[in-house]
């Protein structure tokens, strides 16, 4: 697809061919024709594509070297007892790592933590991004300042964000507990008590990354055609009616996109948790990626860590496909 070739100058002239690529939705008598055309353009593309190879070769080498090969190698490792110390590379373990993964309670616990974080973070990250974008778009004074302050945290590196929030969350001297104490409420152990820790991480993540979704929403809002609002206003629709019947339906595509991106980003959570709690207290915030990291790099069990990665990969793949299906159907 990406390597569309110039239509002229190559061997067999593709210009004479009818309807390339849209054979399936034409009438029944077009079936033979489409089959014929399905073969011939491939030949055409093959010979003319060669001219494109040098252009993509540099990328392709890196793509193969740093993505395809590692993915394949990781899959191979997941069937061995490979260790970081170089032992067991050739000890074929069959499906042993996979059966262990499915019966390993820590895999399930950390998968559960990842899922819980995804729920806790994705919902507000979509909702608040929308609310913030709507507020800014309805014309708060000093729009540029709001835009900047909502988006700025997204630009901070994770190390800075966790440093700052670690101070805010301090049980003894942190700002949150100081404020709570001032209004007569006992402080809580934001990061040190099991029942609050994941919430604290989710709140931090909301503050840190909501700016990106906010920006996507704001861009989408600005591209909603004005004439829709004008027509609605002429028909006597109030602000709420316009929001429900014009703005939100017009944003549906963007919401779908943001939801997909957000869920994928939340599933990949690792850095802020590793820096803030190392997965604690009592493993209550350890995401699956930290378990994979700990298993593979701290405890050297690369083979097993690869197997867990592939289990996680399969789950992410199924989820993404399901989401994609869900949203594309809704759009139709």
């Amino acid at each position: 697809m990406a390597m569309s070739s110039p239509p002229t100058g190559t061997g067999p002239d593709p210009g004479t061919e009818p309807g390339i690529g849209n054979g399936t939705d034409t009438g029944p008598d077009a079936v033979d024709d489409s089959r014929a055309s399905a073969e011939r353009p491939r030949r055409g593309r093959g010979s003319s594509g060669v001219a494109g190879w040098p252009f993509v070769a540099p990328f392709l080498v890196f793509f193969v070297l740093f993505l395809v090969v590692p993915i394949g190698f990781g899959l191979w490792m997941s069937f061995t007892d490979s260790s970081l110390t170089g032992h067991g590379d050739t000890d074929f373990a069959g499906l042993g790592n996979y059966t262990e993964a499915f019966t390993d309670s820590e895999v399930w616990q950390s998968l559960g933590n990842t899922a819980w974080f995804t729920v806790l973070s994705s919902v507000p990250l979509v909702f608040f991004a929308l609310v913030m974008a709507l507020l800014v778009h309805t014309g708060l004074p000093g729009q540029w300042m709001w835009r900047l302050s909502f988006f700025a945290p997204y630009l901070l590196p994770v190390a800075v964000v966790t440093q700052v929030w670690n101070l805010l969350y301090q049980p003894e001297s942190g700002m949150f507990n100081t404020v709570l104490k001032a209004v007569g409420i006992d402080g809580i152990g934001w990061l040190v008590e099991e029942r609050y820790a994941m919430w604290s991480v989710a709140i931090l993540t909301l503050w840190w990354t909501v700016g990106f979704n906010f920006l996507l929403y704001l861009a989408a809002l600005q591209s909603v055609p004005d004439h829709l609002y004008e027509a609605a206003a002429l028909d006597g629709a109030g602000a709420w009616r316009r929001l429900w019947s014009i703005t939100l339906p017009q944003l549906r595509r963007t919401t779908g996109l943001i939801a997909v991106l957000q869920v994928l980003a939340s599933l990949k959570v690792f850095d802020q948790i590793y820096l803030l709690t190392k997965g604690g207290p009592a493993g209550s915030t350890r995401p699956i990626l930290e378990y994979i990291y700990d298993t593979g790099f701290t405890n050297y069990r690369l083979g097993y860590a690869s197997a867990v990665s592939y289990v996680f990969f399969a789950i992410v793949l199924v989820l993404s496909l399901a989401q994609l299906g869900l949203f594309s159907r809704r759009e139709d």
Partner: peptide, 14 residues
């Protein structure tokens, strides 16, 4: 790390 995490709920009084 695991030992510290196991101890933490008890030390915080939970």
């Amino acid at each position: 790390n695991r030992m510290c995490q196991a101890l933490q709920p008890t030390l915080t009084g939970a």
